[in-house]
Write a protein that binds this DNA or RNA. Structure first.
Lengths: 182, 182
DNA sequence: TTACAGGACGAACGATCGTTCTGTATAAAT
DNA sequence: ATTTATACAGAACGATCGTTCGTCCTGTAA
């Protein structure tokens, strides 16, 4: 995962990864069968880590706006933590496969769709509870949050801008009608 | 540019590009010297195309909010046009090099910084004219617009969602306080 | 004591990578 | 008309790519 977050899933090389793991190429690939299966396993592992870091703690908050706020906080904190030295894994994979059909693209799309669904459900609950404007489309809210996190973290990384994630956080809170943090 | 927008700048291969251009490998690389110089030339050409498609028409609008609106409209239209079969070039390059130092990373960072500067200037003008709230940070506005365009277009591509750019457009207009389009 | 499954190894496969060198043909300059 | 420069083809280079092969070692079951 570390290697792929920097070089991309497509940038993983059996030879290099094997030497990084102090294994032989054949010993490594024997675990998965072929490279694509290994890439899918890496992606699945990274998604699990995201869920554990963001969804799991946030799911303890009350449904609706409180949970949405908890998600946003955990999300930004996850991006800030630097668990992946190369930035958000799914964003990297999205860019890599958005124009390249195949199982990996399907896996990435499924993961993004699932996450957007989670966000949309909470946005709808928030709207039904009166915590979001009645004319606000929950799917719009979900898509906007995802776009900000994805695009913002990439821009911050390439610029080397430490304040970027603060801006992302502020924009996400603004998107769901929460007041600035301070 | 077509090839790189799909496979990424790092995914360009001298052999493949040469055969796509019906040239020999040596004939192609002879033009640039080495691969990295060629990649930088491709990136520069893509940036020129972006400027021509987005900034040039928008620069005819009055400074401040009108110009910001023109930029947003042209920007979304540029993303919609599909000039690059693999999506926004600078976003792809940002993800590829955000964790990989070198001249290409520097080029990408410089381009993003320059564009954010353009957006920030117009946001400040809009704020000074009273078209944006006085407590709204122009740099925040610039960063938010960039994040939405970048992250939103990628998400839309990987999901195969045709409405995605409409959502991006709406979110960008919302970010600068403009009313929904209809 | 034997049989066998699983994991990992080193070696090798053909293919492709980026780069370099040499030769030739065309166009420009003298 | 002759020289010079440029553009490109062709061949070859060492390196690395993903994959496959046969072999060995270890641990468990019969």
């Amino acid at each position: 995962m570390d290697l792929a977050s920097v070089e991309g899933l497509e940038g993983i090389t059996i030879g290099r990864l094997a030497s990084e793991l102090a294994m032989s190429k054949s010993g490594l690939i024997g675990r998965f069968g072929d490279k694509e299966t290994m890439q899918r396993a890496v992606l699945a592992a990274a998604i699990d880590r995201f869920i554990a870091a963001v969804w799991q703690p946030a799911s303890r908050a009350a449904p609706g706006l409180p949970r949405l706020e908890a998600i946003v906080d955990a999300w930004v904190e996850h991006l800030r933590s630097g668990v992946f030295p190369g930035g958000c894994f799914v964003t990297t994979a999205s860019v890599e496969y958005d124009a390249r059909p195949g199982p990996l693209r399907d896996d990435v799309a499924a993961a993004v769709k699932r996450w957007l669904g989670v966000l949309e459900v909470q946005a709808r609950r928030a709207r039904d509870a009166g915590d979001l404007p009645a004319d606000r489309d929950p799917a719009d809210v979900a898509f906007e949050l995802h776009s900000l996190a994805s695009g913002g973290s990439v821009a911050g990384r390439v610029l080397g801008d430490d304040e970027a994630l603060d801006r992302v956080h502020a924009a996400m809170r603004r998107a769901i009608g929460l007041p600035p943090l301070n």
